[in-house]
Design a protein around this nucleic acid. Sequence first.
DNA 1: ATTTAGAACATTGTCGACAATATAGCGCCA
DNA 2: TGGCGCTATATTGTCGACAATGTTCTAAAT
Lengths: 221, 221
Amino acid sequence: MTFFKEQPVTIADKTFFLLRKDIVEGRVPSGSKLSEAELSTKYAVSRAVIREAINRLASCHLVERKPNVGARVVSLTPEGLVELYQVRESLEGMAARLAATNMTDDEVNDLAQLLESQFDQVQSDESYYQEAGDVDFHYRIIVGSKNQHLIRMLIDGIYHLVRMYRVQLGMAGPRVNSAFDEHKNIVRAITQRDPELAEILMRRHILYSKNSIETKLNSGT
Amino acid sequence: MTFFKEQPVTIADKTFFLLRKDIVEGRVPSGSKLSEAELSTKYAVSRAVIREAINRLASCHLVERKPNVGARVVSLTPEGLVELYQVRESLEGMAARLAATNMTDDEVNDLAQLLESQFDQVQSDESYYQEAGDVDFHYRIIVGSKNQHLIRMLIDGIYHLVRMYRVQLGMAGPRVNSAFDEHKNIVRAITQRDPELAEILMRRHILYSKNSIETKLNSGT
DNA sequence: ATTTAGAACATTGTCGACAATATAGCGCCA
DNA sequence: TGGCGCTATATTGTCGACAATGTTCTAAAT
């Protein structure tokens, strides 16, 4: 149940979503050049809407554009991953802090219930939780912060890059049980309306994720 | 000495910078509608470059765009100010933390020297420090974090909104001496290469600023 | 053989016109 | 008189063509 389903209204929207999906999931390889003419034929739209789509992708930090030269898909590097997770730690920590005071009781209950239902899945079949379940959890807290800047920066911006790293560097891995416990502790802090604790736990949770991914990367090379 | 001077290369760049300046400094009033036709005659460019400029402004959260309807300059509200400073606290806190480990010794020395030179100005003439001096200090730490995401989010994005609030709600006010002391303490923490302390002090510094502004706003109404 | 100047090519930037959508005004009907 | 629907108008979205810039290839000169 992804509740904030963004749906395209204009052609530029649709093209933007398509292109973003293709980039995030690696069909347009990272580091490759984006030719406006080529893309306009590929997606069967005018160059103007391609340009708008590329500009929007640049806002998300998914492509880098140079004037009079063109745009390239960002390249995925270990350093980039570290920087990304530093920002995540900062922003999502604040999101958890704010969620502890700004989420309604109903929202908190729903969140706790979500974890309950995921608990069963973790027991029987681990595969689900890693992907959508984790994202769902984090999204709810971000939205629960009720801070528009935070919400837009994370959901419209950073999370697509995070997903790009996840998909292309193949991050599934373990850490399912431990992450689940961390989620539970965060929810407990929010339930107790303890902002400081919620922030600390969220930051540690993201820090652990980063470390886990880093070791996996290093062992891979 | 503003060292990261961004200069326009294309017409769209120039128009974007002009329009942003006009919005931030209130010549285009907050909450007003941005007519593409009107702006294209006003700035003597085609509608296409106006559209690109508006799109970029939307990425900075300076305007809000609705499909098939148009774009409006954001309205400045007390709640918006609070949300903005929450994000600042989060991101600049992390920037200070990272700066404590990533700034070179030379950069740290320059920063300390900057504060020294500002100290004299604070003694004699308070007016300078509040504006450019404060911004310069924060910019150096942000850049010193060496985190590209942080740098772009803050300098390209949030800081223009901050300036917009400052200019249009007329925030000059006192807090010069106390802010200066806080700056000094932050630099000391960075000099001692103490990331945790640098982050804590920066967050408190921004929190104090927010509180100061809020009380000023409330007393104004 | 290497470097450099220039021309030919390819790509991005800018523009004006047309299409699609939303808004405002007017008349009709209950 | 008030509300509803239609038409007219204004605004945004999309497109193809032209201009400006960057890039590559060639050829000539040292």
